[in-house]
Amino acid sequence: MNVTVLGAGGWGLALALLLNDNRNDVTIWCFDEKEKEEILLHRENKRCFPGVKIPIEIYITSDMSEALAEAKIVVVAVPSFAVRSTAQNIAAYLLEDAVVVNVAKGLEPDTLRRFSEVIAEEIANDVVVLSGPSHAEEVARHMPTAVVVSSTNLEAARVVQVVFTAPYFRVYLNEDIVGVELGGALKNIIALAAGAIEGLGYGDNTKAALMTRGIAEISRLSVAMGAQINTLNGLAGIGDLIVTCTSGHSRNRRAGELIAQGFSLDETIKKVNMVVEGIPATKAAYQLSKKCGVEMPITEAIYRSLFEDASVRKEIKKLMCRDSKMEE
């Protein structure tokens, strides 16, 4: 099948390699012309994926019309802030029966919408979401990974399931697109908190408590927005939360460490040198929690630490000294 991956960052490249392994005809679209030339010269992206070679049969272009001319599956692997503009840009070039697969995780800050909703507002094609615990660095090296795909059109999701499934990449089908997307977006907030715990030198007890109460928060808001609790207990929820909170690959976890160590938000973003999706997700989730009347104390603590210069250590103390209650 002809497949085009929009975005030449780590995740986009890992998926392009996977799709090429599965004997699809793969095209990668690069936003930046200079980056495209460097990738063509070295057959690797030295900025974000050094040492991972891109096979010669994968075609690379910065021309959108060329990239989408024959694409039956189009993978949107751009940073979260570029999802809507990318959807707008591809609308004129998509084949009528092309399926769009979104792999970006987050919420649109201005509208608080899920990305499948954002894309669907700009194009008429079926939109499928792929999510779950899946660091690009491991997928590119064929380490066993399991994810989920979901869509309002399950037939489109089944097509994507077949195209992406590989011996090292197991793809499950999930009917709950709301839960799949919210699990992927909200876990980044808890990962910021996990990094802060690491930055302060706290131990395993603290991390376990954070992750457990974190999934409780994620589930409360997600269910209030129409998700199914089983989804949050699966790969798109707990699975993605575990990997993002514990892995050295996690940029959100790294950002949390830096914030706890006293770096400003701007300094943190500069040091991580990649998009930290948990930062806009925190603002969006904070607003959604107020709108839906859902209690999210960890999210509120991270919000105050990021946007109101609150002390991380003091915010943790506040969380620990809240009134005693039943676990729920």
Rank of each mutant, 00 (worst) to 15 (best):
E44C: 08
N45H: 11
K46I: 15
R47M: 13
R47A: 07
R47W: 05
C48R: 11
F49Q: 07
G51S: 05
G51K: 04
K53V: 12
P55V: 15
P55G: 15
I58Y: 04
I60C: 06
I60R: 14
T61M: 02
D63C: 14
M64C: 07
A67Y: 13
E70G: 10
E70F: 15
A71E: 00
K72A: 00
K72G: 13
I73R: 05
V75F: 08
V75Y: 05
V75M: 03
V76A: 11
V76E: 07
A77M: 04
S80N: 12
S80M: 15
S80D: 00
F81Q: 12
F81T: 06
S85G: 03
S85Y: 03
T86M: 09
T86L: 04
A87H: 01
A87M: 04
Q88N: 13
Q88V: 07
Q88F: 11
N89Y: 02
N89I: 00
A91C: 01
A91T: 01
Y93G: 02
E96S: 13
E96Q: 14
E96H: 02
D97Y: 09
A98P: 09
V99I: 15
V99T: 08
A104P: 06
L107S: 11
L107I: 11
P109G: 01
D110R: 15
T111P: 11
L112P: 03
L112I: 04
S116P: 07
E117T: 15
V118C: 06
I119Y: 04
E121N: 11
I123W: 00
I123C: 03
A124Q: 03
N125L: 02
D126G: 00
V127F: 09
V128C: 04
V129N: 05
L130P: 09
S131A: 10
G132T: 02
G132K: 07
S134D: 10
A136R: 03
E137R: 05
V139G: 07
R141N: 06
H142K: 09
H142I: 12
H142Y: 10
M143G: 01
M143I: 14
T145D: 12
A146Y: 02
V147T: 08
V148E: 01
V148W: 05
V149P: 07
S150P: 02
S151E: 13
S151R: 12
T152Y: 08
N153K: 12
L154A: 05
A157F: 05
A157G: 07
